[in-house]
Design a protein around this nucleic acid. Sequence first.
DNA 1: CTACTTGTTCGCATTGAGCTAGAACAACAG
DNA 2: CTGTTGTTCTAGCTCAATGCGAACAAGTAG
Lengths: 126, 126
Amino acid sequence: MLVSIDHSSSVSLAEQIAASVRRGLVDGSVRKGDRLPPARSLARTLDINMHTVLRGYQILKNEHLIDMRPGRGAVVTADAPASTLVTEACRHFVALAQRAGMSRTDILDLLHTQLHAATQGPPGLD
Amino acid sequence: MLVSIDHSSSVSLAEQIAASVRRGLVDGSVRKGDRLPPARSLARTLDINMHTVLRGYQILKNEHLIDMRPGRGAVVTADAPASTLVTEACRHFVALAQRAGMSRTDILDLLHTQLHAATQGPPGLD
DNA sequence: CTACTTGTTCGCATTGAGCTAGAACAACAG
DNA sequence: CTGTTGTTCTAGCTCAATGCGAACAAGTAG
């Protein structure tokens, strides 16, 4: 898995690390059961602080993508790469909607509308 | 048009103001040719600094949604912006989720998870 | 058991972004 | 002209992100 960071980006380093792992899940370079590099060593590699790496891992933990335990490290618990793609699409949708000033209710309404529209459509199983 | 701000939000005040105007454009309460409230008066109303309001207006100016001139104020120069982008993102999300075999409940759960994740920041929200 | 690894938690310093504050200035309307 | 409004400038404040160091807890390996 390739973890690269950009100090000049507006995205926080922790979020960039989390994004790298998500990308790895999508392209298959990271799979369920894999162990992420120890925070200390990855921090040394990227020349950033250990806490920053752990903060990135924590984001993934909150998303239930990995499990963390002292002594054992960070282990990927994600189900399927497809669900990660879906999650990414969901994240993108939420970010865009909130940027447009939509409330939580607005977002749910829009989703319901699309769900109804989609169920009337053809089965997209190809 | 209703402009409301939330000091506890992780979204900047300027961005919230811009979002309020965008929302107004979407729901029709703000139309092309309308004049936005003067920065000083809106700042007094919201009990925030004038510069913060101007920064929010500046965001909209950069998006070519409004035009600003001294003495005349901020005037809306565009019709409803591409809220279609949000809809498009939602449709993409739904399509991907359903192809992955997710049920309606799964989709709603995922959305709720992401809504919570997107709201994370200062402790004690929810 | 011990030794080592690794995540966890704590406190504190630094940096930059965001917000506030005040003032002076320029463009526009009446 | 006077008054309004955006623009620009300087300065200070707060807070999140990051960095740094240290101790601690849980797990692994011997």
